[in-house]
Design a protein around this nucleic acid. Structure first.
Lengths: 216, 216
DNA sequence: ACAATAATTTAGGCTTATCTAATTCCAGAA
DNA sequence: TTCTGGAATTAGATAAGCCTAAATTATTGT
């Protein structure tokens, strides 16, 4: 059984790979909140364990085994998130933080019981896909709120998961998963989008609107 | 925040204090599954942290602060046990093991939510008292099954928590908390007790009957 | 092609928690 | 009161993760 620290590194590498591949030492150091030398040494260990391939001075990439291990941690995390949200009514802005600790302590038996209790869900409360026990991830092809034409109506399907303050703000705006939204207009010269939600007319930056995924 | 290892030591010392006080190094080593020198060194750290008083060559005793910390871990453990048992239907013989990992990852908020969801319970599924948030333990004055006179009827209130095989056995006998039991007879010359349970007539050793607490 | 800069790795050290081997202490027997 | 066997402690080592400071490498601008 790998340590919780190793699990956290694997998860971080998996997420960063969506952006850059291989993942540079500095990117991993930043995400993990440690110094670059710490990352170099950990990459060496992960490489010894067969979880990553290290391309010296270029970065690290998960092996098939490493990706599988990362997906198991992510599955645990997202199952806990949904469970805490549904069964214990933990507010959406707090579930990530709680799950961050619990994800390392989920036996196969308990995983199954939680999965059963939730009816084998495919999405966590932020709209992120829950990998299957076999490590399959169903990435929905959603579009970003900022890409909708004015006048379009849609439903929010996915929001960033780890920034509690942002999630509270999105809650105030009425832009959490499941909530309806209509693009009212785009401000001239770009940069700002006006939308109508259950909470009324809201202005938000294009940058933020890009991180909110919707389906029509 | 103390490490999970420190939490485990505090809990172990608390439990051993019920038998011997102060707790000898060897007893703690045995319970923690480590060598005596490891315990000596850990006791030094616990002493530095103000959790125990170390009487050199005699053993360790929890300070008020240490006892408080131990009770918090035990509260977490027992709340998780009851929650897993009630909400997720985890079998009684497994809840201890699961809670052993989860007890170290329970934020105050989640603790409150679980406590609320369970209706502020006072006993875990093995019948062990759940300390209050303030560190109060309500030790019920129960009697042991082996101390009942033949013919007496009672209800099982408390059983050992950590031996899964024993708990499965007690389940087969019909001697889990909440189940009714009647002492049928004592075998001549002692050592064995015959009881009637929902599952019929059962024989059990005096040693085992001493670890099963009942109320009439 | 080469020098400057930025990223990465190496070197060496610290803390926590463990171990084995060696030593010291205590309590009970003679 | 002294001896002795078992318990406890000290000494020294290891592994995981982290750090700072120094050295190295890759890249980029000229």
């Amino acid at each position: 059984m790998v340590s919780t620290v190793v699990e956290d590194y694997l998860k971080a590498i998996y997420k960063l790979q969506a952006t850059t591949r291989p993942v540079p030492t500095s990117a991993l150091a930043e995400r993990m909140g440690v110094t670059a030398p710490s990352v170099t040494s950990m990459i060496g260990r992960l490489s010894d364990l067969g979880f990553v391939h290290h391309d010296r001075y270029r970065g690290a990439e998960l092996t098939a085994i490493g990706e599988r291990a990362a997906l198991e941690v992510i599955r645990h995390h997202r199952l806990w998130e949904l469970y805490l949200s549904e069964a214990l009514r933990v507010p959406l802005d707090q579930v990530h933080q709680e799950a961050e600790r619990l994800e390392h302590d989920l036996s196969d038996e308990l995983e199954d019981r939680i999965d059963d209790a939730l009816g084998h869900p495919s999405l966590d409360p932020h709209g992120d896909p829950i990998p299957t026990r076999e490590g399959q991830v169903a990435e929905a092809d959603a579009r970003a709120l900022c890409d909708l034409a004015p006048g379009t109506e849609a439903v929010v399907t996915r929001v960033p998961d780890s920034d509690a303050a942002l999630l509270r703000y999105l809650g105030e705006l009425g832009l959490l998963p499941g909530q309806r939204v209509k693009v009212a207009e785009l401000a001239p010269f770009g940069g700002t989008i006006f939308v109508e939600t259950g909470g009324g007319r809201q202005a938000l930056s294009e940058g933020l609107a890009r991180r909110i995924l919707v389906s029509e």
